[in-house]
Write a protein that binds this DNA or RNA. Structure first.
Lengths: 200, 200, 200, 200
DNA sequence: TATGAATGAGTATTCATTCAT
DNA sequence: CATGAATGAATACTCATTCAT
């Protein structure tokens, strides 16, 4: 849809706060008022953008899991599927603090249900790929991975000010490589889960 | 300091966005302009509030680590020290997206240095408590725990709309118990780290 | 246009600094935001007010020049056309120091071009009326008259404090009658120009 | 005096509005409050700066007039004495619109008297140099020259925006060379005065 | 003389959203 | 389906000035 496309393209180019509905309208070749025939708030519009992106990510995950992990671990899987999706990562980082507010309950509920349905399917695949996971644990672990992704992105990918500040050697230890840290943490996490299952 | 106190108390009562500098001034018994004698922006003011809270949390961690983990694990430690600090958790959840923007480079640098200095000390204690950690790993693991905390809080502690929506049974699986999940993830994480050290 | 009218009427009643955009909106029967649909800053709004006033003044000049000076001199012409336009004089006295700042380059350029186009036409008429003027001198002399008007207004028309002070006999010599001085200076100026042309 | 010096030096470096009393205090090596022991408002401070500058200008004029005009004309005299005094010109351009407001009546009166006393003396010299001037006309003509200077400066010396705009060839005709125009206008003015005296 | 901590008034501007056509 | 003109709420920040010491 033209509006979603326009919103997505603008989001790719600039931060969420910098995007005005007027700009979306222009990019979509529509009048401002027309946007509101399809999305009742700016947040809802970008919630749908996020939904689409999440869907594509889960598609990617599903495909990879269907082919089997083949010795590669979950950390790799997440890093490989997220690296080309930085827009998604940015969307996730505003999803909870911004998008899910100022949207009607019904819209949020629909959004949540859509996501959950997809995650359940991916969770099942994950359980198949990781035998030590018990039934139903796939979904739960996916949401936790998700939380880790969100937090790590916020902490590891700084705004302009912090980016400048982190160039200072005295605070070098606070620089975090997002994908590196994500992979390592997930590796440790899954190693730990597997270990916990084998022993007590 | 009166201003920091007032800001902290207001933050305890209402969301950050709802707090006006005028309200802080009234609560502190000062004129609006006086606030700006000490903090050049609203964000800087709350950055200092956050700094103080972070300091107290690290104090708490330090004391606990000095007494020794005594069989309890890191997950417990974090849960125990964070549970009484929900204001801190809320501050952390806006720290990167809001507070560290609209603040001068110098202020952010000073903030980062203060935090880092404290974290280095706590990291050393953590290394002492967890023999499988190599030298210098304490700091790194603390920042990663921190990222997990931030992400989990965002995802697990919803705003009013989402809170209502999550009451719906159909999306029950998306409810996350912050402290429960944090403890479990950290346990798995550290179990994994320990395991990784023992084997390849 | 309602907004320009409202702004003009308010300017007639009070000093520029005392006029708020809120007041303009109320007077125009519009919402504050609507003003900014048409004028991007307060300065731009009053720049357009000034443009309209300047246009009317030049209209007046043109008509008078078309009828011919008929023995009357330029000083008379200016005095006669400016005396009923004290709002214009006040606008000119803030035009350079205030209005032309805080306005975008494009707006200022458009303003300048509009004024110049009009002044060129009036300048041509002036050259016709004053045979000793060479081709193209009309415009230049008009801008110089304009500068004189601006300066004389600033110096001769005092604010409240100076008005009180000038009542004191000891500084009587500093009182200037704006229109009297303007007429005399222009008469001398044009007498001089004519003389310069006749002799070396 | 240290404060006047500091104010003057800052004014040389930046526009009036950009100068804060805090900056003056720092530059003078004093505390902010101390400034107000000597000058009751910012405007009064700069009024004294202006007074000093005006005095030096009149000194310069006096000396030149005492040496005699020697064939040179008044336009030359003004251009020569004003060219090295651009700070004075800037001060004059804010004198009436800004400085003489927000200053007590007594202060303005004293200022006016000081200036008048000096101008009377210079006016007498001018009358001596220009025989066609009648007694008492020196002062009056000086104030009119002054008005011309003020207006021409406002119109001819643009702020940053207008400076950029005037670079555009389409409005080239609006560029005015301050000193060139001043000299020419004064020459014409005095030629006219002299002519008027000889005839009619 | 000097300090400097405290004051507090004052307003332009943005932009998501609406609704009559 | 689409328009686009109109809305209006909402707030951080500056800096000249004061006055108790």
């Amino acid at each position: 849809m033209a509006i979603l496309d326009a919103a997505h393209r603008l989001f790719h180019e600039q931060p969420y706060e910098a995007i005005t509905m007027a700009a979306v309208a222009v990019r979509a070749g529509l009048a401002k008022g027309t946007l509101y025939l399809y999305f009742s708030t700016k947040e809802e519009l970008f919630l749908q953008v996020a939904l689409a992106e999440i869907g594509q990510w889960l598609d990617h995950l599903d495909k990879s899991l269907d082919r089997g992990l083949k010795g590669r671990n979950v950390g790799d899987l997440m890093v490989r599927t997220l690296r080309p999706r930085q827009d998604l990562l940015r969307l996730l980082s505003i999803l909870h603090a911004i998008l899910e507010r100022n949207v009607g309950d019904a819209t949020v509920l629909a959004f949540k249900r859509s996501v959950l349905a997809r995650v359940v399917a991916t969770g099942a695949r994950l359980e198949r790929a990781l035998p030590f996971l018990r039934s139903g644990e796939g979904v739960r672990i996916l949401f936790r991975i998700y939380a880790l992704v969100v937090g790590l992105w916020q902490v590891a990918v700084p705004g302009p000010v912090v980016a400048r500040v982190l160039a200072d050697p005295s605070v070098r230890a606070m620089r975090i490589d997002f994908f590196g840290a994500l992979g390592e943490m997930l590796d440790a996490l899954f190693a730990g889960l597997a270990f916990q299952r084998r022993h007590g």
